[in-house]
Amino acid sequence: MHLVQDVELGTDILAANRKLAEDNHKHLRSHGVKCFDIQGAIGSGKTLIIEGLIDILKEKGVKCGVIAGDVAGDDDYRRFSGHGIPVINVNTGKECHLDAHLVDHALEKLDLAGLDVLFIENVGNLVCPADFPLGSDMRITVVSVTEGDDMVRKHPILMGTSDIIVVNKISLAEAMGVDPAVLERDAGEINPHVPVVFTDARTGEGLDVLLQKLGLI
């Protein structure tokens, strides 16, 4: 005879990552390190923005470190290392995002006592990172005008849950026939409380405003 039994579980599959992210956050806090997670599409300018911020902060005596996340290779790692700061390279292999576990291991390799600010550059992806908090203080999403003026409204949940939206490569807007105000308007419609910062990482334009929004100056 068959018997049907209902087993209550209530197990959240994503909770393990959230718990690890909270632990990472506490760990960073205990060392007084402010942490920022930069996510955005491939080629949006995440690396160059972080490089620009590092240079400004270095001049002010702020000690920065970076966790460089990529599917493969060490291109970004080498770029960041060129700024004379501690960098940890994390290759996800086949995964489309960093997770709290990978960040936890990267933190083990960093001397947190020697850092004031840690940037985490996520894998270029505008979908998956959203389900995997890493333990940062703020999540910054980078889009660029070269991706078109519909990038923000195409990714409403990711934009809505970001702490700051950066619109990069602003000097190319006219050449691309893109109105940056459309990106800002769309962001405001999804989340009127998320600040939008216009930058041009190549020239450094807007990076001072971004640093203000990050609470670093």
Binding site: L3, V4, G10, D12
Partner: peptide, 15 residues
């Protein structure tokens, strides 16, 4: 709204 929860399992058992 961000969760992914295995709420319960229904098992067919031999009595």
């Amino acid at each position: 709204g961000k969760e992914c929860v295995v709420r319960n399992l229904v098992l067919d058992l031999e009595d």
